[in-house]
Amino acid sequence: MSGKVMTAKDALYEPPGPRTKKKILIGTVLSLLSFAFLLALMIRRFYLTGQLDPKYWFFFGRLSTWRFIAKGLIGTVEAAFAAGAMAFAAGFAMMLGRIGKSRFLRFAATVLVDFTRGVPTLLFIYFFFLVVPQFGWKLSAFWKITLPVAISASGLVAEQLRSGVNAVPKGQREAALSIGMTDRQTFYRVIFPQAIRYVIPSLIAEMVIVFKDTTFAYVVNFPDLMQNAKVLISNYDALLSIYLVVAVIYILINYSLNRLSTKAEKLLSGKQKQGS
């Protein structure tokens, strides 16, 4: 009757006594000191190698730099959303195949899902970059990056959608059939709308993978953030600072997507509780 809901993570330690409190304090001070030391070492490295020189950083004060970065970012976002949409469509089709009645389709969909999940995105990229043109099929850089990224993500999307469909209680289907709905109506009107709500958080998280994969756009010369970063590098003759900033931008984008996913999860599970 402690009145507190605890997770194991919180329960690992007992409330600290005076001795433990002292130890924690010492640990806190020591760890802070060592982090400060590491940071100082890093800054010293930057200083000694001349990387703190303003010539490597001044252009981040220019609007034109950020405009160019933003342009690249738009390319990244466009590619990511296009790939995400295609992955969703393909994943949806594969999911239908996997839960369908046809034995052949089930088998084919399973093979496709495993194939797309077992092959690196880069290999798909090389397929569209090097192999597809051999058939005389000329794709623009946009498709050369979005298609492989979409294919690579589709299998995961299919599996997520399927787990969502499986999470819908059996009674829902039976209830829909009992009021005379067809199988088709039952799926599209009752099952899927509920399933999609279960998987929205993981679909958002999936976008993180898509965003990350579009970084390979430089392989096919598509002007995304990474590619524009390279142009900046050559313009300003500054590599380290630009790669650092670009990495931070990617991390921030994906971090916010992950946060969004967690928020959606909380929101949706809250709604479901109210509904029941």
């Binding site: 990350k212 970084t215 971090y255």
Partner: peptide, 8 residues
């Protein structure tokens, strides 16, 4: 978990 592999 958020940095793209290529970037790293």
């Amino acid at each position: 978990r958020n940095i793209p592999g290529a970037s790293l």
